[in-house]
Simulated assay, not measured.
Amino acid sequence: MTKTRHILTSALMIPLACLMAVPFYYIIVNTFKTQEETANHPLALPTHWVFENYTKVFQGTEILHSLLNTIYVTAASIFLMLAIGSLAAFGRITGRSKVSTIIGGVLVAAFVIPGQATLIPLYRMLVGVHLVDSLNGLVVLYACGSIFCYYLILGYMRTIPAEIMEAARIDGAGPFRIYWTIVLPLIRPILVTVGVFQTMWVWNDFITPNVFISSQDKQTLVLQVYSAVGQFTTDWPAFMTLTVIVLIPMVIFFVLMQRHIVSGLVSGSVKG
């Protein structure tokens, strides 16, 4: 029975995997073609492999500068989201009161509101504090993703036996010491899981930097890809080369971290 199930699963998943791989094949194979060949034979292998597209992209765009901008925004945002989300979850666990319950309800309401509906108010707020067209402004906006982190970490943190924190409190440990030396190491799996999800979101996000960034020297990688699309003509091989350059770090990152995603979510599903 188990062998039959494995065969059926493979028979279903292999065609689906091949179907999902078609867009990646389409993008990658066209980075080694000329503009004419890409237009005439988009799915065929190149008749003559052209490697100049990658050289042209690195020489003709600020791709490296945009890469540094993206790394800074992603790293700073993830750090703030994990710090704020874990501290808020710890406060919710250890300080249960009517105030924390009300705040939790407000966060639920904020979580269900689509981000696109708040773009105009957010823009006006950032104008008031001079953070529009600023990488730090992007970091502040992405830090709002702490709400997502808070809920995942809260569910995981509830699986930690209360006796552990109570014993530390009896021994004289303060709240921050309990959080830093006891809770933080125990919730590391969910921190990694949330960090992976949020890293992929921030790295690939287009709407936020497109609305709040206007300077060329502050563009992220995704904006570099968008700027490669011309109004009347587009160099499709160069466009797809930029797309591949943006995708490669995230593909490598996801492959390396995927086992932590599963372990983090599964570890928090059972108490004890």
Rank of each mutant, 00 (worst) to 15 (best):
53 N>C: 08
112 V>E: 05
70 T>L: 08
67 L>P: 02
174 G>N: 12
68 L>A: 13
134 S>V: 13
97 S>V: 11
131 L>K: 12
125 M>S: 05
98 K>G: 00
126 L>G: 06
100 S>L: 13
127 V>Q: 15
140 V>T: 05
166 E>K: 13
103 I>Y: 04
126 L>I: 01
128 G>V: 00
148 F>H: 03
118 T>I: 15
169 R>T: 03
106 V>D: 04
61 T>I: 08
97 S>D: 04
136 N>I: 07
148 F>Q: 05
144 C>A: 12
101 T>F: 09
54 Y>F: 15
74 T>W: 07
171 D>R: 05
126 L>E: 01
116 Q>G: 00
162 A>Y: 13
120 I>H: 11
140 V>Y: 03
71 I>G: 02
66 S>G: 05
116 Q>N: 08
48 H>M: 03
93 I>H: 01
86 S>E: 02
114 P>M: 10
63 I>A: 07
173 A>T: 01
59 Q>H: 11
83 A>G: 04
126 L>S: 04
73 V>H: 10
56 K>H: 14
156 Y>T: 09
125 M>H: 00
146 S>W: 07
54 Y>M: 09
152 L>Q: 04
109 A>W: 07
138 L>Y: 08
62 E>V: 00
82 L>A: 02
56 K>C: 06
50 V>S: 04
88 A>M: 14
51 F>G: 11
125 M>A: 07
54 Y>K: 04
131 L>Y: 06
117 A>L: 15
55 T>S: 15
159 T>I: 11
72 Y>Q: 06
75 A>T: 14
161 P>A: 06
156 Y>H: 12
172 G>K: 10
168 A>M: 12
84 I>W: 06
166 E>C: 08
136 N>Q: 13
164 I>N: 08
159 T>W: 07
57 V>M: 15
168 A>P: 09
122 L>E: 10
132 V>S: 02
124 R>D: 10
148 F>S: 05
82 L>F: 07
51 F>P: 04
65 H>D: 07
115 G>S: 08
72 Y>H: 03
77 S>C: 08
46 P>C: 09
103 I>T: 11
110 A>W: 01
103 I>S: 04
72 Y>M: 12
121 P>R: 11
93 I>C: 01
86 S>K: 13
139 V>T: 13
125 M>G: 00
133 D>G: 08
144 C>V: 00
143 A>M: 10
135 L>V: 09
80 L>Y: 05
63 I>N: 03
81 M>V: 15
136 N>F: 11
54 Y>C: 06
65 H>T: 09
48 H>Q: 14
77 S>K: 02
158 R>I: 00
158 R>D: 07
54 Y>H: 04
166 E>N: 13
88 A>Y: 01
164 I>H: 08
101 T>G: 07
163 E>S: 14
133 D>F: 11
158 R>N: 12
138 L>Q: 09
162 A>P: 00
63 I>W: 14
102 I>P: 02
82 L>I: 14
121 P>V: 09
53 N>G: 09
160 I>K: 00
157 M>R: 10
164 I>K: 06
141 L>Y: 04
106 V>T: 14
51 F>V: 08
161 P>I: 10
115 G>P: 06
140 V>M: 12
96 R>C: 03
116 Q>A: 13
134 S>Q: 12
126 L>Y: 12
